[in-house]
């Protein structure tokens, strides 16, 4: 139990670092550095905890990103930065890089290297499984992050009106 928790925390810390790295690439304001790290940490922790309890990676990613999108709103008011600035970087470590890699690898093997027809059928299976998992994870990231932002924008415009 303790080792699982420690492993989860370790992965979460690294996803916080990944979020921060991308934040610095996107030149986030210096005062949001800590927030971006904590949000990346929280997103990673939620995602990997859910995966640990056998929830599918697509749903786990969606929930993690959606939670980040929601808690961005009160934080935006507190630290006086628009939510885009610090809620996009924590979503970046969710990108399904490994599935993308497996898809490209299977496509290459299918096209250029494999002649055996049973193995070719396996490769088609791999292309579709990895490709669609990647696709759905990307969709869940974008929807999870933009839905709360759309809801927030409504209240922001209202304030300008009066």
């Amino acid at each position: 139990m303790l080792t699982t928790l420690l492993n989860l925390l370790e992965v979460a810390v690294w996803s916080g670092i990944a979020a921060l790295g991308f934040g610095i690439l996107f030149n986030i304001p210096r005062s949001t550095i800590f927030t971006v790290f904590m949000l990346g940490f929280a997103a990673g922790f939620i995602k990997f905890t859910l995966i640990h309890f056998h929830i599918h990676i697509v749903l786990a990613t969606f929930i993690a990103v959606f939670v980040i999108g929601i808690i961005c709103m009160p934080i935006a008011h507190k630290i006086h930065h628009p939510p885009v600035v610090f809620c996009i970087p924590p979503a970046i470590p969710m990108i399904p890089g490994y599935f993308a890699y497996e898809t490209v690898l299977s496509v290459m093997n299918f096209l250029f290297m494999e002649d055996n027809s049973t193995k070719r059928a396996d490769l088609i299976d791999a292309i579709f499984t990895n490709g669609f998992t990647m696709f759905f994870i990307l969709i869940s990231i974008t929807i999870g992050i933009s839905l709360p932002m759309l809801l927030l924008r409504k209240s922001s415009v209202k304030k300008l009106g009066d």
């Binding site: 690294w14 610095i24 690439l25 470590p93």
Partner: peptide, 20 residues
């Protein structure tokens, strides 16, 4: 941010991804 800071941060992010 200075170029070197960006390089280090993004490389650390890359290794963070690897851990993930």
């Amino acid at each position: 941010y200075p170029k070197l800071v960006v390089l280090m941060a993004v490389s650390l992010a890359g290794s963070g991804f690897c851990k993930i």
